[in-house]
């Protein structure tokens, strides 16, 4: 067993694990029946799936001999942006009132997403 063979097997296994995580995320997207629970599966299981695919690509570049590490950049970018897009989608769900109403916060009046529409409702009444 030389290093190349071990590297090739490691690439293949990382590919399989990554695609399994991604398909589980998509199954979660289809299966759950509430907008907020649907948010959980693809935004994070998908992120770790892409991470495994990028790891496979890095190992493969080491096997081929031309070292490549800028996959780390894509991974870091995804790990920074995935929470932000999940946060925005959660805010959309709260704003359009399509999920269960959250409990009121103990120390402030209301949540920041809900505070503006309530003033508009009072103005309409």
């Amino acid at each position: 067993m030389s290093g190349e063979i071990i590297g090739t097997y490691a690439t293949a296994i990382c590919l399989l694990i990554g695609s399994a995580f991604i398909i589980v995320g998509v199954i979660g997207l289809l299966k759950f029946n509430d907008p907020m629970t649907r948010l959980h599966a693809p935004t994070k299981v998908g992120t770790i799936g892409i991470g495994m695919l990028l790891l496979a690509s890095m190992i493969h570049s080491f096997v081929l001999g031309d070292t490549s590490v800028h996959e780390i950049l894509i991974m870091a970018f995804l790990f920074v942006t995935a929470p932000i897009s999940a946060h925005f989608i959660a805010k959309v769900s709260i704003h359009t009132r399509t999920c269960a109403t959250p409990p009121p916060p103990p120390r402030d009046d209301t949540w920041s997403t809900l505070s503006v529409p309530e003033q508009e409702v009072q103005a309409e009444n």
Partner: peptide, 24 residues
């Protein structure tokens, strides 16, 4: 960001004056 990245929890909203965080 940490709460959202550790799966099973999503941070959804911040209260008006930033005193509490809503997590699903």
């Amino acid at each position: 960001g940490t709460i959202t990245l550790t799966p099973g929890t999503v941070s959804a909203d911040l209260s008006e004056h930033g005193n509490s965080l809503l997590v699903h």
